[in-house]
Design a binder for these strands. Sequence first.
DNA 1: AAGATATGGTCTATAATAGAGACTATGTTC
DNA 2: GAACATAGTCTCTATTATAGACCATATCTT
Lengths: 144, 144
Amino acid sequence: MTRALAGNLLQVPVPELADRFDEWQKFGFDAARCPVRNVLDHIGDKWTALILISLAKEGRRFSAVQRLIPDISKKMLTQTLRDLERDGLITRHVFPTKPPSVEYRLSPLGRSVLDPLAQLVFWAESRHGEIEDARRRFDASSPA
Amino acid sequence: MTRALAGNLLQVPVPELADRFDEWQKFGFDAARCPVRNVLDHIGDKWTALILISLAKEGRRFSAVQRLIPDISKKMLTQTLRDLERDGLITRHVFPTKPPSVEYRLSPLGRSVLDPLAQLVFWAESRHGEIEDARRRFDASSPA
DNA sequence: AAGATATGGTCTATAATAGAGACTATGTTC
DNA sequence: GAACATAGTCTCTATTATAGACCATATCTT
């Protein structure tokens, strides 16, 4: 299908979006080269978004983040924080207290993701009820 | 820290966002009750966003989606499509061809997530270079 | 002075999850 | 008659996540 034709088939309220999707699909969503996958594989994992949100307001220490997200394991918290640091979304600051304390802060790059992330989260909040209804309907019509 | 004080400490370019984060944190990100987690745990998994994007322009059949996302296994494709159907984001249409073909389409609810999702993806695209630079710097300074 | 608590992790053993690939049934194409 | 396509399911294995012990040092409690 050509790009010119595509316009007629849009179901999408964001035309530029569908065009962009077209471009991505030409790369075949190849995991290595596709920026979408390369980045979303990270911020779309189980804990990353939650950690970014935890750091939104102010820098927080390791144990403070863990208290905010009680069911994260130390291992995953460490790992996810490292990945975020590697990607340049957060910075790590060690204070020579005894025992040493470590604070994590959003970098400007990390702060810049809060806005798009918030769009998604607001969507989640506003559609949560609809989704729960859909789930109930689905579960009622296809019993275990 | 009180809500009144919080305003002075904002690092966030989206004030309402930080307030909302405050609210969520009062629920302690409890996995069961928190709408954010409840929903983001799904659309933030490895394949969901990719599948939604694949269906953005037009309905597609099982095998067509699989061709667009070559490295997804049938098992995960089936499972993710089921979850999306259960959540009411896509609909499933069976055609009595031999062998039967099945087309998946975004529902209005599903279409409504494309916009916020696109914000995030555009972010990913525009920041991809910065992130790769950060990764290189990090890997150079902390060798294996 | 002993014991508990806090710090930011690491390490290991186990549990949950994802992936690879065979298999299904029927029909069309070579 | 063999190969291929359809949309899955099923099983086995590989990867990943979690739970929980452990570390060294210092402060607070009793």
